[in-house]
Amino acid sequence: MIELKNISVTFNENEKDEVDAVKNVNLTIEDGTIFGIVGYSGAGKSTLVRVINLLQRPTKGTILVDGCDLTKLAEKQLRQKRKDIGMIFQHFNLLEARTIGENVAFPLKYQGITKEKQQAKVKELLKLVGLTDKINVYPSQLSGGQKQRVAIARALASDPKILLCDEATSALDPKTTGQILKLLQKLNRKLNLTIILITHEMQVVKEICQKTAVMLNGQIVEKGEVLQVFNEPKTELTKKFIATAFRQEDILHKVIENSSLSPDETLVELSYTGKVTNEPLLADLYQRFEIKANILYGNIEYLQQVPVGKLIVSLVGSKKKISESLAYLNSKGVKVKLLNTSD
């Protein structure tokens, strides 16, 4: 378990300008979870993730990894502890002068491990990330996704319990991002690896994280289970991030632009989770309230295997019936948001 307590990081560029990169952050990350920290660039998430392996010493606060306070360790003990915390980076940071095999073996050298054992470990790791055939190739000959796989193999060489991912997919195209995320998910399940992942893409959080925290100006403004945060975002920032993950904003604009609403039409957004998605709600509306619903946009996403649905519909009917029907939907656990009414 990782516990960050009252972490603050202040950089003083010079005596006058102090920059609070991280302000009073408290975070607990359970073993075996994939935890996503999301925020715009400059939010302090890169600094925060570097506090976890003490690449960045906090100005204030303590870091407990399995109960051990890292800030109290001497350099040598800290180095030992860092072997339990792997890290991968946005730009992969592979050693260009060494082959893929040598890169993966790099953390194993000078540790009193025999050459044979090192080689066996390298082969095992390259197999795990699916790059067995590249062992004697240099990094410059690999694609971005392959480089990140090598970086992952290297980070796992010392059998860490924790893997820190600093914008690990930000330099990759969407398809490769998906593959890397799948690999991380596999490692999380297979090795019970705790993964802390920082990103500016909510898509990434949506894809594999169980828990998430949203950062703004060095502070955590929202945190919790991914499902809960996506369903009931509390802050505007979180809502914005979620909208990007569902690529909703764009579509919404187009839908509203292109729909010529007649006076008795009301445009609403319906969002629902879990088993409500299995009920024929729109048919219900017609039967009970004689409301005709026209679907303009619909989408179902799966968060942690739970379906989350979103519909944009225009409802045609009398004002009274519409408000009754919306109340009914609410009672069924559907969240309703009026987008614009005709008047």
């Binding site: 690449l55 860092r82 792997g86 940071n93 050693l95």
Partner: peptide, 18 residues
């Protein structure tokens, strides 16, 4: 030399001389 490599090596627990 890319500072990222130095950072990666530190994260791996290498000594400064290393």
């Amino acid at each position: 030399v890319d500072p990222g490599l130095i950072e990666a090596a530190q994260a791996m627990g290498l000594s400064r001389l290393g």
